[in-house]
Amino acid sequence: RQDLNFGQVVADILCEFLEVAIHLILYVRDVYPSGIFQKRKKYNVPVQELNGNLNQYIQDTLHCVKPLIEKNEAEKVVVVIMDKEHHPVERFVFEISQPPLLSISSETLLSHVEQLLRAMILKISVCDAVLDNNPPGCTFTVLVHTREAATRNMEKVQVIKDFPWIVADEQEVHMEEAKLVPLKTMTSDILKMQLYVEEKTRK
């Protein structure tokens, strides 16, 4: 379709992927008890899905992030896992870059993207093999790194009433003595993405 909004298509694909990825990270990194997850198939691979309040929270978060991705203003989406004292122990960084405007020519292109996202999901599902165990009682938050000053993007991100956004604290962003664990890079015509983990050396 000629009238497809390119930015919207990328944002739809990416937010759907991020939702699956966040659920899987929370499962694999044992942030929530495994009993509250349900096995599902996405991208033709087994994934884990949450229901209830937690699922709603993740959906609301991504619904707000979507307008930034649509306008190519989100540089990174980061899932931060924090210990009981709210200090980050792991940061799953999705670094996003979108090429200049182009039209989506065929379904083959989208199917290719899906294959690349599938590979990324598979990599997340086995990432516990390369990461140290987290301490008990961890929580998480999702951060969005914007290309422009965050305050300029505040209106765009605040699309849900009663789901306000704020500028992140230095404490949640900064992690001392972290090592970098690259997980996967994907390059397609419509989207480039790097996924890596910053892991605190002494958790």
Binding site: G52, A150, I166, V173
Partner: peptide, 27 residues
């Protein structure tokens, strides 16, 4: 781009592990 000036987060925190478990107990 150091510090938090380019970084946004939701004000509300997600439910904790304990809160989720408490909800399950109530069911």
């Amino acid at each position: 781009k150091s510090g938090g000036t380019h970084i946004l987060k939701p004000l509300m925190s997600p439910p904790t592990r304990e809160e989720i478990l408490a909800t399950l107990m109530d069911l």
